[in-house]
Amino acid sequence: MLDIKSVSKTFNPGTPNQNTVLHSVDLHLDNGDFVTVIGGNGAGKSTLLNVISGAVLPDNGQVLIDTDDVTWLPEYRRARYLGRVFQDPMQGTAGDMGIDENLALAARRGQRRGLAWGIMRPEREQYKQVLQDLNLGLEGRLSIKVKLLSGGQRQALTLLMATLKQPKILLLDEHTAALDPKTGARVLELTQSLIEEHHLTTLMITHNMRDAIRYGNRLIMMHEGRIILDIRGTEKQKLTVEDLLHQFEKASGTALDNDRMLLS
């Protein structure tokens, strides 16, 4: 489904701020994999996701989605493969537009947009239905502006938008980090159920080790631009936070430095 082949990325090459964030990273995702990604500060997690989404182009290496080479495809042309949810709830939706309009924009992800109406009548019924399943009480408020919603509601809506048109790969970049713990947990439950319902191949960055262990069928840990741990199957099911910390120290030779990760 997804193949990353020896991808490297250095920011600010040739300057005192030179910073290699990805060292020849290889990663293969099978169809239906739900992979959680953890790692310390500056481990390269977000850059890895950005290389897949096209927000950052790699210095070398290859990115293949479903055997299509997308390495040099601009961000907007990769959109048809990808559903994305960002950390900041404000970034995934257009605040000045209605819930229905946002969903309609997402329903046309990766399609050619023409002079047909931006939202058709039957679509509204369909959106009412999917919102009802979300159980946030939004189905009766289809046309209110998204900026009036809470962060949790916006993030749930963004998730819905990312999966409305089935993506090949779902990319989640700490999408619950900006929410309070209770709301974050609800959004994660929703994430899980949407992934199961649509059998989505997913890459989810999280700073919460417990979440990384609880969710998904595979866990990778990054450190200084490399994937240092790749745990899957029954081994992952038996994993505990203590195991993970221990394995991290063994693999990296240092203690974990992500403050948020240790505090949560």
Partner: peptide, 26 residues
């Protein structure tokens, strides 16, 4: 501004990052 293109233009003014992620060339 009610059409698909028009909606995309409005979204560009509102949140370019989001609409790029939805496949629009801003």
């Amino acid at each position: 501004f009610g059409t698909e293109i028009g909606s995309a233009i409005r979204a560009t003014g509102n949140n370019p990052k989001m609409i790029r992620a939805l496949g629009v060339h801003t």
